[in-house]
Nucleic acid binder design. Structure first.
Length: 313
DNA sequence: GCCCAGGTCTCCG
DNA sequence: CGGAGACCTGGG
């Protein structure tokens, strides 16, 4: 019988700048990872630390309410470290009021925040998880790639047992590389032809010493050139990885929707090439590109703009 | 059965 | 460079 340590703490709205809505952020389809497991109105995930894995449960009534955090582990829990990791994952250590000011200063974007109150980046605790999730998301539906990633975690990730329930981390590179590229291996998780992309990219990451740290130290554009060398990683997926996996806010992932929306707002509805849109974002949005992209995508969905843009493909 | 899903890869002009 | 097709797979 293993005895569990437990700790509890609260994150108040005053502890960070700007708004935060946990539910909205988790369910916004960002390709860092699937949404956290929802149980009894609490969002649950295992976080990894040097000395131990910790099961974290977070609840929040609604926008800007207290975040009530419970943690469980077989070892002693360093509450401060858990808190730091949560701040990183939900970008709470970023002064997002800069983004609000930027939206205010740009008349084309004035209405955008209304539909995104409390939405923040949802980052992966480890970049590798985001790389695989993002590769999996290409030419795929949110529902399908999140199921694939969730099932892979359950099958191959380290687990933590609590209240007779199993919770899983995403497997490390070396473990992932051992999954066979076959119908009863990686392809049994419904990833299709992306399985070889995932495995080849994993191999490249392992083969390059200190891969993640190097990317972390690179500027956005240097990092982009390196990350796009991975298999199954084109411009869109590269930007997702840099934004959600490496916290590079300059990234502006351009998919069909972002292309349509950006063209609609800034190019009189005339369709531009993705490359053109990317360059435009760097000039116009700079360090706020990531949030503008996140908000525009969500804004378009909620405001009914997607339907309008769909018709004139 | 056909189309689509937050694209990427390959080939070609 | 930029366009055209093929592509795993599950759901509508």
């Amino acid at each position: 019988m293993i005895t569990m340590q437990s700790e509890k703490f609260i994150i108040e709205n005053d502890d960070y700048f700007g708004d935060f809505d946990l539910r909205l952020t988790l369910n916004s389809g960002q390709t860092s990872q699937p949404p956290w497991l929802l149980e009894n109105n609490k969002y649950c995930e295992v976080l990894k630390f040097d000395d131990t894995d910790v099961l974290v449960e977070i609840s929040q009534e609604s926008l800007n309410d207290d975040l009530i955090v419970s943690c469980y582990s077989e070892c002693d829990i360093d509450v401060e470290n858990v808190r730091k990791k949560i701040f990183y994952i939900f970008d709470l250590d970023y002064d997002i009021t800069e983004v609000y000011d930027f939206l205010d200063e740009n008349k084309e974007l004035n209405d955008v925040y209304k539909f995104n109150k409390g939405l923040r980046l949802f980052k992966a605790q480890f970049p590798y998880e985001c790389i695989i999730s993002s590769i999996c998301s290409a030419n795929n539906s949110i529902k399908r790639w999140t199921k694939s990633i969730t099932d892979i975690k359950m099958a191959y990730g380290d687990e933590i047992l609590f209240n007779n329930r199993k919770y899983h981390l995403f497997p490390e590179e070396k473990v992932f590389l051992n999954i066979p590229d076959s119908d009863d291996g990686l392809k049994s998780f419904g990833v299709g032809y992306r399985s070889s992309y995932m495995l080849n990219s994993t191999k490249k990451i392992i083969d390059e010493v200190d891969f993640h740290n190097k990317i972390n130290k690179c500027s956005y554009s240097e990092a982009f050139d390196k990350i796009i060398e991975l298999d199954g990683v084109g411009p869109k997926v590269a930007d997702c990885i840099l934004l959600y996996g490496y916290n590079k806010h300059e990234a502006y992932p351009v998919d069909v929707w972002i292309n349509r929306i950006t063209s609609y707002i800034y190019f009189k509805g005339q369709k531009q090439t993705n490359k053109k849109i990317m360059g435009f974002a760097q000039d116009k949005f700079g360090e706020y590109s990531g949030y503008v992209q996140l908000y525009l995508f969500n804004y378009a969905r909620l405001s009914g703009l997607t339907e309008k843009l769909k018709s004139k493909k």
